[in-house]
Every structure is written in structure tokens, then in C-alpha cells.
Amino acid sequence: MSNAPKRAHKTPDDDFVDRLSDLPDGVLCHILSFLDTKYAVATSVLSTRWKNLFLFLPNVVLDDSLTRKRRNKKVLLEFARFGLKQIMLRDVPHINQFHLRCSFNFEEPAIQMLVCAAIWRNVKEIDICVRKGALARTLPPEVFTSSTLVVLKLRGYMELNVPELVSLPNLKVLMLGFFILPSDDSMRRLFRGCKHLEDLSLSNCNFWLVEVLDLSIPLLKKLSFNYPCSIVETKLVIDTPNLEFLDYHGYVAKFNLVKKLKSLVGAKISFVTAPKLKLPFVEDHRENVSEFINKLLAVKSLYLNIDSLEVKTKLHYPFGKSF
């Protein structure tokens, strides 16, 4: 085998050949997909060859922090127009991911239009994070009836409106952050419409409207609660025979594990107390917590943290595991 030097010598022509632009569209788009949208779009001014390449990027990532320096209505409108153009004019019928980050006042109809367009283009992953309030009013019902959606991540800071019809047959990952969760029925409707859900994460959600959160999700493998708000009076019914990972971080709730979680591989339970807020201590839920922990015993790896040593010693867990 010949041993080639690491660095080859340039031929005299190399100084004049544009090998980059000679690469096929697919390769150039793949290169651009490693760049933030702003930098990818800026390449459109390199030469006419590059002018419309951004239209073929597999993912549509719109992040308004990129335009932060020029916050005015005109720039935002251009930004939304660009997003729409990128979704509608593309040659490929699918979009892998649609990411939207809006930290300031984005035109609400524009968000709705962009989301609908992405769904129309058979998007597989939606990840939206918008400023307070905007999403609840503008999240189109089409989001809940997409047959192609696999991942749905929403951070909205408002009440979640679940439409009458929910049908997300391919959804595997659902992440809701900073929502006021709606009534029991709405939540039940949402989960029933996600027959193949495997990963559910509720982060910083407010449960004050939910009396019973019925998590009867047959195929669920991963469940996480992070800083649930006002959850102390909510009954959490967990009926998930295939659950492998459970992560709970926050105040104690009224847990109701319907069956033992036989498939559970790892559990990370961390209860926090807030005496100044007069929230119930773990000891007020002693029986409930004991029962809950007991049902987790089949787990291979358990991390348990109760935010008070005093409480910890008061609880008598009938098992010899150290934690």
C-alpha cells in the first residue's frame, strides 16, 4: 500500500478552482445543516450557486435570538417570511425538524402560519418555545392531529388547550413545559390520542386545574416530572406496565401506582419541601410515599432524595436498600 503524505501538494490549478461550489446540492446542504440558520442563510450571498440552497435544508430552525440586535417589526416580518419561504418552497416534501424560539413579541398569526405550514410539510419533530402567552392563543389544532409527528416539545407559559380531536398515532416523545394543564378530561383525551407514546416529560407545569392525572399509557417507557407546581392536591394515577425510567423532582403528590412497575430499570425520586410556603411535608404523605416507594422496589437503580434528614429518619421503609 502506498503511504501518502498527510498534506498533499497543491496543483497549480488549485488556486483557481472552486471545489466547494462544485459539491452536489445535497452535500452543501448537509454542510449548511451544521450551521445556525443565520450563518446558513448568510451564505446565500456567496454566489448565485448558493442563493437558494437554504431552501433544501432538512431542518427549519428559527431562533429570534439571532435577530436580537435588530428588534423591530420589519425585521421580524422578514424573519417570518423567510421561515415560510423555507417551508413552502422547498423541493423535498418532508421536514425533519421545525424549531421555533421566540423570546419577544412575534406576530401571533405568523407563528400559527409557520406551524401549520410545517405540519402540512409532514414534519416529524416540532420544538417550540415562545414568550409568555403567545402559544396558547396561537397553537393551531392541527398540531394535535398530525400523522407524521414523532416528537412534540412545547414550552408555552399558558394554559394548554387540547382540542376535541387528538390523533397523534406516531408520537413517541411529548414534552410540555411551563403550561397550566387543563382539566382531567382534556389530559385524558390528550394521552388517549397518543397511543404509541414512549417518553413523557412534564416540566414546570402547573397542576392546579387537575384533580386526577390519569397516566394510563400502555407503551410509556420514560416518565419525568420536573418542578410540578400546585401538585399537592393532584392524584397521580400511574398505570404504565412498560415504564423503564421514572424521574420525579418536586413536591410530594398523591401517588397512585396502579400496578408494580415490573419493567422499571431506573428511578430517580427527589422530594423537596418548602416550609415557608406551608406546603405539606413528606411526612404528611408518609403512608402514600411509603406505598409508592414500595412499588418501585423491583427497580435496578434507585436514587432517592428527601429534602430533610429529619423526615428521612421518620420514614420506615421496609427494605434494606441504601439510598
Partner: peptide
């Protein structure tokens, strides 16, 4: 082009 994508150029 620069005008159309003004937000992409500082």
C-alpha cells in the same frame, strides 16, 4: 439578497 435576508447579516 442582502436586503431580503437583512436579519442574517449584522
Amino acid at each position: 439578497v442582502r436586503k431580503e435576508f437583512a436579519w442574517a447579516f449584522k
